[in-house]
Each structure stands twice: as C-alpha cells, then as structure tokens.
Amino acid sequence: MLSVKNLTKSFGGVQASRDISIDFPDGSLTAIIGPNGAGKTTFFNLISGAFPADSGQVIFDGQDIVGKSSLEIVRLGMVRAFQVAALFPSLSVSDAITAAVTSHQRRSAALFRSFPLEGTKTRVEEILELLGLASKAATLSRNLSHGDQKLLDIGLALAMDPKVLLLDEPTAGMGPDERWRMIGKVQHLWEAKKMTVLFIEHDMDIVFKIAQTIHVLKYGAILAQGTAAEIRSNQDVIDAYLGTDHHLAQAAGEQ
C-alpha cells in the first residue's frame, strides 16, 4: 500500500530528511517518534505532498506520488489530520462533516441544498458514531472541547474515505484522561476501518501500548525501527530519546 524509498529533503544547507526508506503494510498501525527537530513532521509533509521531495520515491497504491499535489494525493486515498485542528468554526459538528463528505463526493452544488443527498446523511452518521460525536452533532465546532475538536478533525479526514490516515500528534495539548480517551478512539477507528494508520506521538506510554511498529527518527534519518519491546531496549534510542530514567521505569514495571 505505502512504501517510502530513499526519501531526501533539504532546506538550504539543512538536510531535514536523509535517505528514509520505510514500508507500511496494509492495515498497519505505525508510530513515528523522535526528539524535537528529528524530521517527523517533515516526513509527513513529504509523503502527503505538502513539500516536494528532492529525491526518492513514495509508492502509494502502486504508483510514485512524489511531485503530485496534496489534493491529488487526498483523492488517491492518503489523508492527514493535523496537530492543530482545521475546522469549520461556524458550522455544527454534523454540518461540518456533511460539507466534507459532500465535497469528497464532488457534489459541490449539493452544499446549497436544504437537505443532504441520499447516502450523505448515512455516511455522516457513521462517522459521528465511530468517533463518539453523535451526541454533539448540533454543537458548533468552535464550542467543542479541545479533545472533541481533534476528533472532529479526524472526522473531516474520514470524510475523504482514506486508505491511509496520517495523524500528527493526535493527543497534543490534552490532559492524561483526555489523551487516553483520544487514543482509544484512534485504536477503535483503526480496528473498525482496517485502514493503514501512521501517527506521530511524543507520549511513549501511548506509543508502546498501541503501535504495531515504531520508527525512530533522529536528524532526519532512521535511527531504529521495530516493535515496542525492541525499541524500549535499543540503546541508541535510549541515549537519543527515551533516556535512562524511562528505560529503568519501564524495566521496573515489567518485574
């Protein structure tokens, strides 16, 4: 489904991505981690078409998408939800998702109808139920809690019927309870839709709990990749990112 080969990007004299090669199997749940400045968001920007790569390939659904626009990539089925939610603040939750679903269906004229087209309402209701937002369907987007705004942003991404979903720090700015609620929704979404999900996350407890595979970036290059157990015990990752205290705390918890 998604394979990145020798992806490289420089900004002036700074090499932000250095020869990155990663395969993402269909239906996988993968975490991208690393210290600040490691190149995580740049990596997402490159594979989603926000930045053009200097060299390398991004093979998505059998074709190289390097050089395609973000809109073209979305239409192919790779969709991104951002760290800062991009919402329709003056619309209700239901109306915002209806607008996104209608736009994806390329029925722009239907936006001005009094009632959504057949099939649109069912799709909107499915997304609301999947994310636990059905009870807030009539709430204005701007009046949602921070966590629910992030869920709505994911809902807008789901309206594009993605094959691959990119989540850029889905729990950023949340308290502990809200973080676990969010990540539970992400895991439920992944299990229910069987889509490929890539997420950037700084909370290692979350990463180690749900990610099937973890890729660690440092200075724009792959430092390590493997399962949670492999990453936790990797000395290079401990030195560069996790720190000895986290490693000792994890070891104590396993005893």
Rank of each mutant, 00 (worst) to 15 (best):
E126S: 13
Q250H: 14
I97E: 02
V14Y: 03
A31G: 00
S145N: 07
L87I: 11
T98Y: 04
A228R: 09
S10K: 14
D177I: 02
F82S: 02
K9V: 03
I222P: 07
L71M: 13
M1T: 09
G34A: 07
A31P: 03
G56C: 12
W180A: 09
A99L: 11
V84H: 15
L29A: 04
G147K: 02
A134H: 04
R179D: 06
L2N: 06
I154K: 04
H188S: 15
D19N: 15
A50K: 11
L223I: 03
R106E: 14
D23Y: 10
D153Y: 01
G56H: 08
L248W: 10
D239P: 04
T171L: 07
S108V: 13
M1H: 01
A159L: 07
L117K: 14
S48A: 10
A157F: 03
T171F: 09
H104M: 09
D54L: 06
F51M: 08
H246K: 13
G155S: 08
A172K: 06
Q235K: 14
G226V: 04
K185S: 13
S114T: 11
P162Q: 08
A137C: 03
M1C: 03
K68A: 13
I97F: 01
L128T: 00
N36H: 00
S145Q: 04
S90K: 11
H146M: 11
D64T: 09
R75Y: 11
I32M: 00
G13L: 08
D64I: 01
R142K: 14
L91Q: 12
S114W: 12
L128Y: 01
S135E: 14
L117D: 15
K193G: 02
R106V: 07
Q105I: 01
G49Q: 04
T41F: 03
Q212S: 12
T213H: 15
I238S: 02
I222F: 02
S28L: 06
Q149G: 01
G132Q: 03
S70V: 12
I20D: 07
V207G: 07
R113Q: 14
K163S: 10
V164D: 03
